[in-house]
């Protein structure tokens, strides 16, 4: 696969947990400033791909490239300045004993960047959180507010790539709409590249023009959101997921 014009390239990625092969040869490429969606059911390996891309799992083989450069097994700090991740569960992704202020300062302190006092109020503004939450603890915030904090934390070091692992599936639908809108605004303003994993076809199709469908550790189909909406699917699994999703849309 030609990696020169693609910001992120995943080439024949295989991930094993012990004897189980969770991901068997996944390849895709994402251009700068676009959003790539991965849909699938639980156990399809979609989150595993994302975590390996983030450097959270070192047991993989194949190739992963960022901006044409092959990623090492153990990621460098420079990588984390370019690639960040937002997790599914906003209740589990913030340290329970640390204030929002501490959570947002952590990337700046850990990477020796500094300037937290100016950066934190700005980061809160960007995700439309009131300054009043700055010194609260996570348990004092709602799920949607916590997910905004997680997004602010991921963006505070100005990365180019955001990996989104089911970022709205733990949220109420009204909050989901707000967070999805926030994500599309941020992408436009900062020319971010997204890779978003979700089980919800409508959510992925809303944010991502290109979608890979995973089943049993493989990408069974790659199609545009437009083709998915129009029902131009080639793999039966995609068709089944689409049917289940549209069935409920008609009142």
């Amino acid at each position: 696969m030609d990696g020169r014009f693609q910001l992120i390239v995943v080439d024949n990625l295989v991930i094993r947990f012990g004897r189980v092969e969770a991901v068997s040869g996944v390849s895709f490429a994402v251009a700068r400033g676009t959003a790539w969606g991965i849909v699938g059911e639980s156990g399809s390996g979609k989150s595993t791909v994302l975590r390996a891309l983030a450097g959270l799992n070192e047991n993989w083989s194949g190739r992963m490239l960022l901006d044409g450069e092959e990623l090492p097994r153990r990621r460098t700090r420079a990588f984390f300045r370019r690639v960040q991740m937002v997790f599914q569960d906003p209740y589990g992704s913030l340290h329970p004993r640390q204030t929002i202020d501490r959570a947002l300062a952590e990337p700046l302190v850990a990477q020796g960047i500094g300037g937290a006092d100016a950066a934190i109020p700005r980061a809160l503004d960007e995700v439309a959180l009131p300054q009043a939450v700055r010194f609260r603890y996570p348990h004092q915030l709602s799920g949607g507010q916590r997910q905004r904090v997680a997004i602010a934390r991921a963006l505070i070091t100005s990365p180019e790539v955001l990996l989104l692992d089911e970022p709205t599936s733990a949220l109420d639908v009204s909050v989901q709409a707000e967070v999805l809108n926030l994500l599309s605004d941020l992408q436009r303003e900062r020319n971010l590249t997204y890779i978003m994993v979700s089980h919800n076809l409508a959510v992925v199709a809303h944010l991502c023009p290109m979608i890979a469908v995973m089943q049993g550790g493989r990408v069974v189909e790659t199609l545009s959101a437009e083709a998915l909406r129009a029902g131009r699917t080639t793999h039966p699994h995609t068709a089944e997921l689409r049917a289940l999703s549209t069935e409920l849309e008609e009142p």
Binding site: V173, S174, Q176, A177, E178, L180, N181, S184, L201, A202, V203, A205, H206, A225, L228, R229, R242, S245, T246, E249, E250, P251
Partner: peptide, 29 residues
């Protein structure tokens, strides 16, 4: 359901992203 009257119910239905009716921006409640 389609004839729901309360603005909250209507809002809940409107803010769902769907495959059949793409929206550039989701309606918020």
């Amino acid at each position: 359901l389609a004839r729901a009257e309360h603005p909250y119910t209507r809002g809940l239905l409107a803010c769902l992203p769907t495959l059949s009716h793409p929206q550039a921006r989701l309606t918020t409640l």
